[in-house]
Each structure stands twice: as structure tokens, then as C-alpha cells.
Nucleic acid binder design. Structure first.
Lengths: 78, 78
DNA sequence: TAACTATTTATCATATAAGATAACCACAAA
DNA sequence: TTTGTGGTTATCTTATATGATAAATAGTTA
């Protein structure tokens, strides 16, 4: 019995996975990126796991600290 | 004495302005887009005015109903 | 074994996005 | 004048994103 995910949950998983991939491509630990963005590693883990529906400002901070544009951060498939 | 806006506020204004422009380019009233997205026109007005820090899911609904990608929706300058 | 690093998960408080309603303004057009 | 359309603003409630701490897991290195 696998639970069917909502559109919102699928979106969260997709962007979380994308952010994790972008971060790992640059070999930056969660800890480091989180601290650059001024939040806790636990909260970045939550976001990458798709357990939150992040705001544009949170995403902007992540994009900035990965040195990519918001547009690139949004370049993923739902 | 004009108040200096925070990074967050500037971001909100920028995306709000961008969404408004995209909507007007398609000649869709706020009322209509809001109802397609299942929220009130007052809330879309608030968002376009830059008075809220929208979540990715809210932005996704807007992109979908403007028939553009999330990536395009994010193609604006801060 | 123990120590260290990276990550995950649970939990709690606080700030705020979203949902909703109502009243208002500006401008047509009837 | 009244009616209709498009938009704004204020306010309230509710849901939830975020901030923060702690503990647990897994892998690795000494």
C-alpha cells in the first residue's frame, strides 16, 4: 500500500531532489550550504527530502549560495 | 524619508511585477487567473503587489495556468 | 573500539503564507 | 444616476514554512 502523492508533494520532492543534486555536484555538504544560507542543516535536509513547500526567498538564498540563478534552480521536471 | 526595502521585499516586488506583466500580456484579469488557480482575487493582488513571499506550489499553480514553465516564471531580475 | 563527518528525523515555538470575506476606488457603459 | 468590471486594501483565521535544538543513524578513519 504505497500512498499516492499529491501534486504539491510531488513538486516538493522534485525540487528537493534537484537542489540536492546541484549541491552534490559542487561537493558542498548540507552543513556548509545551510550555514551560508543562514539556516540549520536539519532544515536543509527537510527541504531536500521534499518535506516542505519552500518560499521563493528560501529558494533565492539557496540559488545565490550555489552561485546559480533562480531560473536554473527551477530547471527540473515535476 | 522613503523606507529602504530588504532583499526579501525587493524579491517579492520583482516577482510580483513579473507575474503581473505575464498575466497582462495574455490579457487575463486577476479575477480569472485567481479562480483558475483556486484562490481569491484579493490574494493574487497581494502577491502581484509584492506583499507576500510565495511558496513554490503557489508559483507552480500560477505558471501552469499561464501555460508557462516554472523556469519562465522565474526569469526576472531581482 | 572510539572519534569524526554527513545526514536524517523528531519536536517545539514563532512568524507568516494562504484562504476567505468585505469594503473600497476607478472607470466604463447603460 | 446605477450597474458592471478590474483591481486594491484591510482584516481575520488557519495552515504551515521557518528557526532552533536534540538525538539518532551511517560511514569513515584512527
Amino acid at each position: 500500500m504505497s500512498k499516492k502523492l499529491s501534486d504539491k508533494e510531488l513538486l516538493q520532492k522534485a525540487i528537493g531532489k534537484h537542489i540536492k543534486a546541484l549541491r552534490e555536484k559542487q561537493n558542498i555538504p548540507q552543513q556548509a550550504l545551510a550555514s551560508l544560507c543562514d539556516f540549520e542543516k536539519s532544515n536543509l535536509s527537510r527541504l531536500e527530502a521534499g518535506n516542505t513547500n519552500p518560499t521563493i526567498y528560501t529558494l533565492k538564498k539557496i540559488a545565490d549560495n550555489l552561485n546559480i540563478s533562480l531560473k536554473e534552480l527551477m530547471d527540473f521536471d515535476v
